[in-house]
Amino acid sequence: MVDAVREPWWTRARRLVVVGAVVVLTVLGAVDVTVTVLAFLRPSTSPPASGIADEVLDGVAEGVAVDYLSWDARDRERRGQVLRRWAVPDREVDGWDGQGRQSADGTAVLGRTRRGVDQAVVTVRVRVVPYAPDEQSGSQNPSTQPPAEESDSSSRADEPGVPAAQPTSADAPGWRALPARWLVLAVPLARYDDHVLLTAPPALVGDPGITLPEPVPAVEAVNDDRFTRDTRQAVQSFFEALATGELDFVRAPRARITSLRNAAVLVELRQWRGVQSQPDAPPGQRAGVASVVWRIAENAGQLTCTYRVSLHRQEDRWLLAGIDIDTGKTP
């Protein structure tokens, strides 16, 4: 019998190394798959990179939207107290004129736009029921009556739960309910002392559709008085078209702007402040800040909203290139 040829020691060593590597990779692969499956099954509790979870922003925005679009001329102080709870301290966020009556009760978040690490604008669709003075009742117009006698602050503080601005009675004397409708509200929020609070008054906007429009940069430049005078009429036309939907004649090419669909009527362009162009701005691009007053339904009330407006000059006329809400200064 002839002895088998023995393998060199380095051949056996190489075989052992290969076998060991296969075993290690198999084990690591199983561990990696297990970790992946467990991570998928276990919900993540870590916040996004901004530090504020989407569901937190959405929840706050929906609460703000309901309170902001609810009011009663007979109980003005209650709305003010409620909105102060939502807002950054010492920040005025109430754009209501104190007249009329409206109730909001349903919300749906349409989208959110992050503005830096701890700021965002959340767009919310809100179902509202506006009221008009009931002329057939023969009673005095409730909007012209003085507010009801206010109770002391201690009784308000003793209310169970968290107070809301919604009118207490759906069937109030002197008012008749109008058909319910949907409004879209943009709500600017930011982190402040471990809370998410309102940084500026919300503003009525058009339905963003599938994609949100690009935000208009904050305007912090020097006022341009001549540009302000020359463009005021054009800017007023922009907001009239924003209300009615006739945007094709005033909207710049490729601008993504949607109308309010007659959900509100423009009462006045209260203020328009055009600013000097930035040194690096493209030719024909200008911007400014506009404050407008909207009337909701018939006499249900009025809201003052502030917007950042971007203009584009095409030939001899200015067109609306972008519109965004004013978010206020970072707290």
Rank of each mutant, 00 (worst) to 15 (best):
V265L: 04
V267S: 10
L247P: 13
V184A: 09
V18P: 02
E240I: 04
D67Q: 09
A290H: 06
R295T: 02
S137E: 01
T306V: 15
P202I: 12
E315D: 14
Q302V: 02
G274S: 12
P133E: 04
P130I: 01
S277F: 00
P89Q: 06
V187M: 08
G322Q: 08
D134L: 05
L41C: 01
R261Q: 15
S237P: 03
G106D: 15
V117F: 07
T330D: 11
P163I: 06
Q99I: 04
F249Q: 15
A243W: 00
V37S: 12
L183V: 07
A281W: 08
E77D: 11
L28V: 15
D54C: 04
R74H: 08
V267A: 10
L183P: 03
H195D: 15
D58L: 00
V205H: 07
R115N: 10
R232I: 01
W318F: 06
V293I: 05
P130S: 07
R191I: 04
L242N: 02
A53K: 10
L16E: 04
G209V: 10
W9Y: 08
L197T: 13
A164S: 12
T231H: 10
F227M: 09
H312S: 12
R101A: 00
T228F: 11
Y307R: 03
P142I: 12
R317E: 15
R317D: 09
D58Y: 08
V265N: 03
T327V: 15
T199L: 07
A252Y: 14
A120E: 02
I296W: 02
V35W: 07
R6L: 05
V56K: 06
A61V: 14
A190H: 00
E268W: 00
